[in-house]
Design a protein around this nucleic acid. Structure first.
Lengths: 156, 156
DNA sequence: TATCTTTTGACCTTACTTGACCTTAGTTCC
DNA sequence: GGAACTAAGGTCAAGTAAGGTCAAAAGATA
């Protein structure tokens, strides 16, 4: 049974797909009502599935007329790759966040299906016999190596 | 009298037969309940009967909505890969040896040029911020993950 | 009897869910 | 124009729901 968080994630991605403009605006309390959950659940979904490394930006405003705006970063250029490299550099990346990144690279056709499978296998816990928190550091390095390779000219 | 482990093994293999997609998803606690045993018994069965060497890959997720996914590998047409997995398993692999392996995979057309570049980047010294001799161990694990992925059905 | 396999349970890690409390932005009313 | 009120969203810690690990005990086998 998929979790509530998964379903909310799918719902938002669906809205993004439909939207055309590359972003959606919604009310936290409204979504919470649709899924019959506490509002803070939405924040959990946003922070675990719509992070910058995963290619999303979330803007918001409080108070009357408040909203959440979820923006799918446009990534037609290599600039995005360098941004990602900067983000990943010297950071810690969980398996979940890493898979999100790979999914995004796949979506933007920087990677093929096969390549995405390979990279996911490589950043999985079982492939990295290193204790935490070092493991998340190694994973970040691996992803950086992948991103750098994607920027190489021979790689087209 | 067949052991509990044997019966659980048979049960899962039966499910795989039926499945069509080449994998099954199940809950550890659910299976444990069916066989009235402790959940960790399922891990025992998975690790002794569903290893990559035996032609299976197990993925999992913890937490709410967690699951086990058991994937049947395409083992018949790829005997050579199984042999390589056995070689790499629990060994230390230098960067040079690793690159040699990748080159062979490329020659045999198990990998494309791009994939080979990616894998080489991943097993390079710079991508692995781990001191020797541990680094060679991590590299071995990474190569094993690659080889196992090559045996997946979706990877055609 | 010695060794190998299986079974069990205590303890661990990861992921998700909930709710109490906080901050910010408008709105209304002297 | 400030005080009080209302309408959002934000944070964080505790609780819950999975699966993972490891070692000891029990059972099977040679």
């Amino acid at each position: 049974m998929r979790s509530l968080a998964d379903r909310i994630e799918a719902y938002i991605k669906q809205m993004l797909e439909v939207s055309e403009q590359g972003f959606v605006e919604l009310q936290r309390s409204e979504i919470a009502q649709i899924f019959a959950c506490v509002p803070s659940q939405i924040n959990y979904v946003l922070s675990t599935r719509f992070s910058p490394e995963q290619g999303y930006l979330v803007e918001s405003r409080r108070g009357g007329g408040g909203y959440l705006r979820i923006i799918k970063l446009d990534v037609d250029s290599k600039e995005w790759l360098s941004d990602l490299i900067a983000m990943v550099d010297n950071s810690f990346v969980s398996q979940q966040a890493g898979e999100g990144l790979v999914d995004r690279l796949l979506e933007e056709e920087f990677l093929t299906d096969r390549e995405a499978l390979l990279v996911k296998a490589i950043i999985s816990r079982e492939a990295l016999p290193v204790p935490l928190p070092q493991r998340d550091l190694v994973r970040a390095h691996l992803l950086k190596a992948v991103l750098v390779t994607l920027m190489r000219d021979e790689f087209q």
